[in-house]
Design a protein around this nucleic acid. Sequence first.
DNA 1: CAATTTATCTGACTTCTGTCCGATAAATTA
DNA 2: TAATTTATCGGACAGAAGTCAGATAAATTG
Lengths: 291, 291
Amino acid sequence: MQPTDIDRIRRFHRTVTRETGVMDQSFLGRGRPLGSARVLNAIGRGMGEVAAIRDYLGLDSGLMSRLLRGLEDEGLVETTPSPDDARRRVAGLTDRGRAEFEAYENLSNTRAQRLLDHHPNRADLLAAMDLIASALGQHAVEFVECDPRAPDAVWCLGEYFGELARRFERGFEVHLSRDPEATDMIRPKGAFFVAMSDGLPIGCGGLKGHDGTWGEVKRLWVSPSARGLKLATRLMEVIEATARDLGMSVLRLDTNSQLPEAVAMYRRLGWTEIERFNDDPYPDVFFEKRL
Amino acid sequence: MQPTDIDRIRRFHRTVTRETGVMDQSFLGRGRPLGSARVLNAIGRGMGEVAAIRDYLGLDSGLMSRLLRGLEDEGLVETTPSPDDARRRVAGLTDRGRAEFEAYENLSNTRAQRLLDHHPNRADLLAAMDLIASALGQHAVEFVECDPRAPDAVWCLGEYFGELARRFERGFEVHLSRDPEATDMIRPKGAFFVAMSDGLPIGCGGLKGHDGTWGEVKRLWVSPSARGLKLATRLMEVIEATARDLGMSVLRLDTNSQLPEAVAMYRRLGWTEIERFNDDPYPDVFFEKRL
DNA sequence: CAATTTATCTGACTTCTGTCCGATAAATTA
DNA sequence: TAATTTATCGGACAGAAGTCAGATAAATTG
């Protein structure tokens, strides 16, 4: 009897549920209830605002308060009133708290490492995990505006150029392309966005400002693991909104007919094909959109 | 900054943890604590013996007893003493219990279906899930002895023949091969095993009895999603143990040089190459092992 | 400036989860 | 047959998780 698609998903789900149960057990091994451990980990991972933690973990305000107090009593956490709104509190780890957080991190990391060590095909396993994480987390993607020279942005751009090199018959050399100055993709001239899924970059897109009147969409890239989830469309929406915000009335972009998915998407999003507007050697299709 | 392998696994883990949290919430929506819901689901999925459920869910005997009683009070479950050991109790669903179980099943199924519907590439998503489920569940594989004509066995054999057809240059036609009678792979003559991972078949192997003196290993197959996890080796161990149990002193098998992984494995497991012992057109390598 | 809203805290309470121990009754062993 | 082991049950209890209503203090609004 052939397993149905649903059977396969459910088997996956059960296996993975068992796995999280095991992780929970090992967390409990540090002698702290799961609730406290989760709060500690949220703080350690950079969440400072009490409200943000509460929201992330879905906790009642009373419960949150008590868990935080417990961690304070243990000497792991300190809270201070937020500078711009003294009602809010910001939590941070003490030295002991940081050590304890690292201990939890080690538990998770060694478990991950063990899984990796016991698998014959790391690349496929990791690709499968990326694919699933993107599929499950597609509604939890954050679009973070940053400097295109920031680490996450640079990583995305590296992947982007690498992919172009693979897909273009003639290859692709970064320095051949008119690489816009990073400062053209920073406010107030332009902007650059990285799509973050649970802390990992999975896509990017830039808006390059041209002497205040028009903008150019550049470097739109989505990780292979997140393709098909309409992430590029959402990035474009963010970029268009930013362009309007910056007072631009026209957007342009160039692309290549060897990237048919991209060309199709621009058409679908209401862009119209125009004449070549630069002498860049790589693109052979040009689009424009009035805002 | 490039995400490390560990980062990627941890992201996967967090995403999937969030997902199970959502499922738990939706289960709670039926107004029953998670513990009870889990017991009900275990029973619905075929676990009858109280001890088996307790073991599967890792529950204390007292807690188990109380949860079971709660479900009985709700009229969802009935327990009867086991026929062969009246100390043990066997739990079963009442009609109302079955309806309630179906309701939980629907919650899980619709969530799975929704995920499937929202993804552009079902085949890749499912393959990724199979791969991960096999990697995580490699220590929870059960080797079930069954009739080679049973549904799970037939499905595995279909996959097996399909793969042979793809890998052999000359193609592969099932009827050309000397297809051993199913009854030769059933006790007392022989045996057939299906490797089950959480209810889904992921591999198989047969032991064909030849007039009581020697046995032949046939139809050894492992699902692509579970390759590299030493599953074939474990299947072989089960088959060899069964052969000893049936009083066989020699095992033989044939394979093909176009399946180098298989040939390498047989050597590693202590098999020695021998002369051709049948006139089957497909195999070109023959092995023997004395027990 | 008074009234209202917002973010957090506290206490009281319920339910759920997990543990321990002894009771019971059915097998198993000596 | 008596003693022991095994599987379940039930009571008592402790800690964890979650809910609710009010208290407090800092913003915000009118």
